Each structure stands twice: as structure tokens, then as C-alpha cells.
Simulated scan of single mutants.
Amino acid sequence: MCQISLRRKSKSEFIRPCKRCTVANCSDIRILMESQVFSMGQSILQPGRFFAAVILFIMASTGLAKTAAIPSYDVSTAGIASNPFQVYLIQDESRTLTIDEIASGRIQGTLTSSRFHINSTDINYWFIFTLENNSSEPVNRIVRFDEPFADQASIYYRQRGAWHEESAGLAVPIKERRVSNRNPIFPITITPGEAKTVYLKLQSNVARITIGLYCDKPEIFLNWELLQTAFYMFYFGAASALIVYNLFLFFALNERLYLYYVLHGLAYSTFVFFYSGFDLYLGIDKDLHLF
């Protein structure tokens, strides 16, 4: 092994090898330099570990590291006033989780808006929130989705010590639903002083759509439904009048352009009829339902 001559002239001077060897073939110099680099790395990392520990301590003491809680809303005098509101979301990518597993609290979720975007058809979306009745009288509320796209839409909540379940998606014909409506509608009664946690399960065969979740008083829901129905009836009536008028012009003038107007009006009106879900009132099977 070669001899090494080490001298420290100043703080900035590096280690110099002897004249009989070079840095490339002197193992002692390499070992010494590697040990110095390792020591420098440790001195750099130690402050980083200290600051990381401080940040974790602050998060734990202030509650920032805690998981999100299930939102709770007082519906004693009205529905949930804020729109959209916050709900607790669990995404079941396996599509095998049961209501007992979801309600156990062992599965982590996140807070999201009640107006949400469906990204995949291979996920069961669970929306969870609590409704409180702080009055002395029982209250009736309507929990609903505002679009008819969901193939599976179910509600779960505890009632008399057992799970109460209702389904109202496309998989359930309108005549078999508790509320005969094109959208999934779930009436719910909350007794005085009760805090009822609601679990909504949703699965759609159509992705990249937006669906809203609401909780209203029955009269508010009825007004909304009447307004929606009146709007669609006005549209279908106006579209039918234009179709008949252009059909009359086609036969009277024998102009092919008016036939194109008729075909365009029929195609678009049919699309709106199926898209809005009014076709479900005719008993059309979900496999024939268009979006």
C-alpha cells in the first residue's frame, strides 16, 4: 500500500496524495474521501429530519393530519340550504363492499361536493352525510338525484336497529319504485332529536357526466318537478308544432328542404325525450334507454 502524505494548510485545501500514487489508484484516499462525503451528507440530512418531525408534530396538534369527518346538517325547518353542499365520498373500485363495511368507519374517504362528476362506470360511489332533526316534531325530507342516468341508485340508513334499503335507478322500473319519478327519489322521515346518517350508493353505465344530489322539503321538490315537467312539455309541444308545420310545407311546395327540417326536428326531439328520462314513463326497458 502506498504512503500518503497529508497536510492541512488551510480550511479550503484538499487532501493531496503522495508522488508515488494517483487518486485513481490510491484506495486509502478514496476511502477517506468517501467517509468525508458520507459525514457531510449526514450533517445535511439531520436538519431535514428535525424540520420534518416539527411539521408532523404541528399537524397532529392542530388536527390537520386527521381524516375528514362525515358532514352533518340540521334539517329541522328546511332541507339543506347550501347548494352544493359537502358529502363524504368513498369510491369502491372493487364494487364488492357492503353497507356494513362502508359504515364500519375502517374505509377512508374524502369530502366532495354534492354536485359531482362520474369519471368511471366501474366504480360504486358511496355518498354519506347526516341529517339532524332538532325540533319536537318529525320531519319529512326528499333526498334525490337530479338526473336519470344512474343504473344503480340506492339509499341505506338505520331504522329500528336494522338497515333500511331502497333502490330507484334504471335497474328498477318506475312502477316498482316508491316514488314514480324518472329520477332516483328517496323520501325519508327523521324523528324528533334524531341524527340519521344517510348512505347513497350510485353506479352509472355512462361516464363523464355530472349529477347533483339534493335534500329538500317535499313541497320544494314538488315545485321543482312541476317546473321541470312544464318546461319539457312546452319544448315538446313547440317542437311538434314546427315538425307538423314543416311537413305541411313539404307536401304543399314539394320542396325537399322542408323534409330535412322535419327529419332534423324528429331526431333532436327524440334525443331530448330519451335524454330527459320521460321515455321511462312509457315502460321502456333500461337497455333501450338512450342518453
Rank of each mutant, 00 (worst) to 15 (best):
G109T: 04
N25T: 14
A195G: 05
N181V: 00
S72I: 12
E132T: 05
I190L: 15
L97R: 12
P218M: 02
Y156L: 04
S240W: 07
P47L: 10
V198C: 05
L290M: 14
A150M: 14
L45T: 10
A153W: 01
E93V: 09
I107W: 04
V139Y: 01
S61A: 14
S76E: 01
Y281M: 06
R95C: 14
F273C: 02
S12F: 11
Y199G: 09
A252P: 04
R95P: 05
F149H: 11
F51R: 06
A69I: 06
L97I: 05
Q159W: 10
I188V: 15
E219T: 02
F116H: 11
A60T: 09
G277I: 12
I128E: 08
L200H: 02
A238F: 13
S61I: 12
T197I: 03
S120P: 00
I99L: 11
A153H: 01
E255N: 07
F116V: 05
A267Q: 01
Y157S: 07
I185P: 05
S269I: 06
A68N: 12
E13N: 08
N133P: 06
I188N: 02
I209H: 06
I80N: 09
G105C: 08
S43F: 07
F149Y: 15
Q228D: 10
F291E: 08
A195L: 03
S104A: 13
R141M: 12
H289R: 15
G193P: 04
I128V: 14
V179R: 03
R115M: 09
H289A: 14
F51I: 15
V23G: 15
R177T: 06
S27D: 09
K196D: 01
T77D: 12
I102E: 04
G109K: 12
N124L: 13
C18S: 15
R178C: 03
V272W: 04
W163I: 14
V54P: 03
I155R: 01
V143P: 02
S27H: 03
S39V: 10
L253A: 11
G41C: 11
A239G: 11
A230F: 08
S135M: 08
P148S: 10
P17H: 15
F145K: 00
